[in-house]
């Protein structure tokens, strides 16, 4: 899992990689007061942030070469479904790459707390993948 690099925003949310399941990293987001939205519930944006990071990590994990320029992603869009209220406890997420082509990565990702079969939120995310030999500005 060392190849999955989490960036400053992931640190801000308190996210780390804890394991791997079916080739996709499992992320955990520790509870902190800075994740709260309505009293006693996680903020929808914090849950969305966790889902997006898990989605990117899932695509990243499909790329073999450590310095593959395709490891640069730009989000195109994300649709988040909120299924249950997020409790103020540790939250997990794992993405499943639906398809990683040369240009587009498509991921389904779920977040859960006590029970992985009872997700609190799910999302579909599409990302542009940088092409080999392409500058980072070009999408």
């Amino acid at each position: 899992m060392s190849k999955v690099q989490l960036l400053p925003y992931a640190d801000f949310l308190g996210i780390r990689v804890i394991s791997e399941d079916g080739g996709s990293p499992v992320l955990a987001m520790s509870y902190s007061e800075g994740l709260i939205g309505a009293p006693g519930r996680l903020h929808g944006g914090a849950v969305a942030g966790l889902l997006e990071i898990a989605a990117i990590a899932a695509i990243d994990a499909t790329l073999e070469e450590p310095d593959d320029p395709r490891q640069r992603f730009k989000p195109i869009n994300v649709t988040v479904d909120y299924i249950r209220a997020g409790k103020p406890v540790e939250t997990y997420a794992r993405g499943v790459a639906v398809r990683v082509g040369t240009r587009i990565g498509s991921v389904h990702v779920e977040a859960w707390q006590d029970d992985p079969t009872k997700p609190i939120a799910a999302a579909r995310m599409k990302l542009l993948i940088a092409q080999k030999g392409e500058g980072r500005e070009e999408a």
């Binding site: 925003y9 949310l13 944006g45 942030g49 997006e52 994300v78």
Partner: peptide
């Protein structure tokens, strides 16, 4: 990151 934009929206 895109997540903070989701949060404020």
């Amino acid at each position: 990151a895109s997540g903070p934009i989701v949060s404020i929206m």
